[in-house]
Amino acid sequence: MSLAFLFPGQGSQAVGMGSDLAEAFAPAREVFQEVDEALGQNLSRLMRDGPEDLLTLTENAQPALMAVSVAVMRTLEREFGVGVDRAAFVAGHSLGEYSALAAAGAISVADTARLLKLRGQAMQRAVPVGEGAMASLIGPKSDVALAEAAAAAGSAVGVCVVANDNNQGNVVISGAKAAVDLAIEKAKELGARAILLNVSAPFHCPLMQPAADEMAEALAGAVILAPRTPLVANVTARPTLDPEAIRRMLVEQVTGRVRWRESMLWLVEDGGVTRFAEAGAGKVLSGMAKRIAPDAEAVPLNAPADLEAFARSL
C-alpha cells in the first residue's frame, strides 16, 4: 500500500486547532514553541484561544496551519515511529506546500514560519481590500473548462483566472472584483453555482505579482534542502526533489494555479498511491481525495486518537 501525506491550506483553520495534540504530546508542544519563538509572537495562544478574526488573518492563519501540520508529523515520528519517509510522496495545497516541505526536512520549521508570515503579509499588501475577489464554482457541471470560459468572460473588464482546480465540481476563480462578478454571471449561465469566498485578497492570480516578487527575494536567501520524500508541486502536478526547482516553484505558486486535481490524479495513476493521510487541521483534503480517487483510502490526522489509529494501521 503506497502512502502520500497531504497538507491542508488556508480555510482549514479553527480556534482550538492543535490544542489536544499539545496537551497529549511533547513533540507537538515543541513545534508550537519553535514557531512562537521564530515569529516573536504567541501564535500558539491565538490558535488555542482566538479570537477567530485574528486567527483568520492571512499572516496568522498560514504559519498556524503549518505549525499544526508539522506538530502532527513530528508526533507521528517521535511517539509512534512513523516518519515522513514512510510515504512515497508529500503534497500540500497552496500554503500547505510549505508545511509539506517543513515536514520533509527541506526547510527548517523556524524559517518556514517566517516565510509564511511574510507570505501572508505580502499577499495582503499586493491588492487593497475590496479590489479583488475569489469565487468557488460548484456543482456537477463545474470543471476547469467551464471555469476557464467564465474567467475568459470576466477578463473583458479585468484580471480573472482559474486559481484552484480542486476537484470536479469545485473550481475557484480569482481576480479583480468586477471581473470575478462578471465571471460569476457567466458561470451561472453555463450551469454552475457560484459562491463568493470570504477572503482578504485574490490569491493565485496575476494581481499577486507584488507578493511573488517579495517571496522571490525572501526565498533567494532561504536554505532549502532536498526533501526526505518527493514533493508533488502545485504548479506542475509532478514530483521533485530539486531544491532549486522547489525555490522557483514556491515563487510561481503565488500567482499560479493550484493544480490539486491533477496532482491527486498523478499520485494515484502514476505514483501508485492507494492511501492518503491529511496531516493537520480539518479534513478538506481528505474529502477532495475521496471525490478525485474514490478507490483510494483517505484519513484526516487531527486528534491524538487519529495518530494512534493510523500508526497501528501501518
Rank of each mutant, 00 (worst) to 15 (best):
L6M: 08
P8Y: 09
G9I: 11
Q13C: 03
A14S: 04
A14F: 08
G16H: 08
G16K: 06
M17F: 15
G18H: 10
E23M: 05
F25P: 03
A26V: 14
E30W: 08
Q33K: 11
Q33N: 10
D36Q: 10
L43Y: 13
P51E: 15
E59W: 12
V70H: 09
R74D: 06
L76E: 09
E77D: 09
R78T: 15
F80G: 03
G81A: 11
G81M: 10
G83W: 03
E97Y: 11
E97M: 05
E97C: 07
I107E: 03
V109M: 07
L115H: 00
A126S: 13
V129L: 08
E131A: 14
G132Q: 12
M134H: 13
S136A: 15
E148M: 10
A149I: 02
A151S: 07
A153N: 09
S155A: 13
V159K: 01
C160E: 08
S174D: 00
G175V: 05
A176W: 04
K177H: 03
I184V: 09
E185P: 01
K186E: 13
G191I: 10
R193M: 04
L196H: 14
V199Q: 05
A201V: 04
P202G: 05
F203G: 13
H204S: 05
C205K: 07
L207M: 11
L207E: 06
P210E: 11
A216V: 10
L225C: 00
A233S: 12
V235T: 13
T236P: 03
T236D: 07
A237K: 03
L241I: 00
L241S: 03
L241H: 01
D242Y: 06
P243A: 09
I246M: 14
E252R: 15
T255D: 02
E262C: 04
L265D: 11
G271S: 05
V273K: 08
V273C: 08
V273W: 12
A279F: 00
G282Y: 07
R291V: 15
R291C: 14
I292L: 03
A298I: 07
P300A: 06
L301V: 09
A303F: 14
A303R: 14
P304I: 14
